Simulated scan of single mutants.
Amino acid sequence: MPDSEQDAFDFLLRRRSRPAKTLTGPGPDRAALMPMLTAAARTPDHGKLEPWRFIVLEEAALRRMTSIIRSTGERLGKDAADIEKATHVYTTSPLCVAVIEVQKDSPKIPAIEQTYSAGAVCLALLNAALASGWGANWLSGWFSHDRAFMSEALGLAAHERIAGLIHIGTETSTPPERPRPDLEAITSWVSE
């Protein structure tokens, strides 16, 4: 394996999301973010539908979202602790990319494959940010599944939804390693 491919493989073996609560500014500027978005857009996409798009939320937009998350939580009957936990990261994060799943009518490509592609974009963007030296985390949260929140906070249409919220910034601490899956327990081998 060429050294560059080995380096990429080694990165994948040791990659680790950084908790969003440990991220601070600065975040990447537009020039630094565009190659990450480019890498994310190279995800598997059966039928070349591009069933996703990006909304880049900079600091002022993130702060605005905290009030929308709060009002959504109150409307949904969430307790104060849940609301505080959900809003905290939006008060400290320097940048977040909302990956939006955009379902497209297709006689050949099922909706679930479009959902998978949007999820693949989230992981590709997360890995691109980490490989670029930024701290990054893929979040969602109870509010991100609420249709009224999607409409008010991000202006999403009825055929769109949030696939993931990728926070990108400067990490303040390296997280400890966590337990990983037992591959022997979750892998089956079929030879016939």
Rank of each mutant, 00 (worst) to 15 (best):
I68P: 04
W134K: 01
G133H: 03
T72R: 02
F143I: 07
T115G: 06
A61Y: 02
F149E: 12
A128I: 09
T115P: 01
A118I: 05
E50A: 15
L123Q: 14
L76Y: 05
L139K: 15
N137H: 12
G133K: 03
V121W: 00
A120G: 13
R147D: 10
P94H: 14
P44M: 13
D105Y: 10
I69G: 01
S106C: 12
S132K: 01
V102C: 14
H145L: 07
P51Q: 07
R63L: 15
F54V: 12
L125V: 03
V97R: 01
L123S: 13
V121C: 06
H46L: 11
L130E: 06
K78W: 15
C96S: 04
S71P: 03
G73F: 04
S106Y: 11
W52P: 00
L125F: 06
A131Q: 09
I55P: 04
P94Q: 13
I109K: 00
E113L: 07
R70Y: 07
M36A: 09
M36S: 11
M65I: 12
W138P: 00
D146L: 14
P110F: 08
G141R: 07
S117D: 00
K78T: 04
L123A: 10
L62D: 02
R70Q: 13
R64T: 04
L126A: 07
A80Q: 15
A124S: 15
M36F: 04
S140E: 13
L125C: 07
P44G: 15
A98Y: 01
L76P: 04
G135K: 02
L95V: 06
